[in-house]
Amino acid sequence: MIIVTTESVHGKEIKELIGFVRGSTVQTKHIGKDILAGLKTIVGGEIGEYTEMMDEARQKAIGRMAEDAKAKGANAIVSMRLQTSAVMQNAAEIIAYGTAVVVE
């Protein structure tokens, strides 16, 4: 599956427009890691536990979006975007979305 943030795939021609596809996940960390992350806010610096959580969430959301596109017969996704939002304390939703197409 080709996934790009641009409106076209360089060197390929879009033969068919399939339509909107998306994938999302809501992630949170174990309470022990939340406590460690809270302590990190006192001294400053990167909160590695949350960086790791968000990376995992992005990968899951992109993977689910690609599965949605594949199920609809696409072999590429153009104009891919990521968004995040807090759905509750210490939990974040990541959504990946784009336009599924067939390229040659």
Rank of each mutant, 00 (worst) to 15 (best):
I47F: 10
G19V: 00
G38C: 03
M80W: 03
T99P: 06
G98A: 01
M65Y: 07
E93Q: 13
M53V: 08
T84K: 11
L39P: 07
E104H: 13
V78F: 11
Y50M: 01
R64E: 06
I77F: 00
V43A: 13
E93G: 05
G38I: 06
M65S: 11
A92E: 08
A76N: 02
Y97K: 08
G23L: 02
G19H: 08
R58V: 12
K33H: 14
M53Y: 12
G63R: 02
F20I: 10
Q27F: 13
E93F: 08
E104C: 15
I14Y: 00
E67N: 11
M80D: 00
S8G: 02
A91N: 04
E93T: 06
V78T: 11
N75A: 02
A66P: 15
Q59A: 13
T99A: 04
Q89G: 07
D55M: 13
G11F: 14
G11M: 07
Q59D: 13
T28W: 12
S79F: 03
I2S: 01
S24N: 00
V43G: 09
L17P: 02
D55G: 15
M54P: 04
E67H: 04
S85N: 07
V4W: 11
Q89N: 14
A86C: 06
D68W: 06
G48R: 04
E7V: 15
E104Y: 15
A69D: 01
Q27D: 01
K60V: 15
I18V: 05
R22K: 05
E13L: 00
E104I: 10
Q59Y: 08
G23A: 11
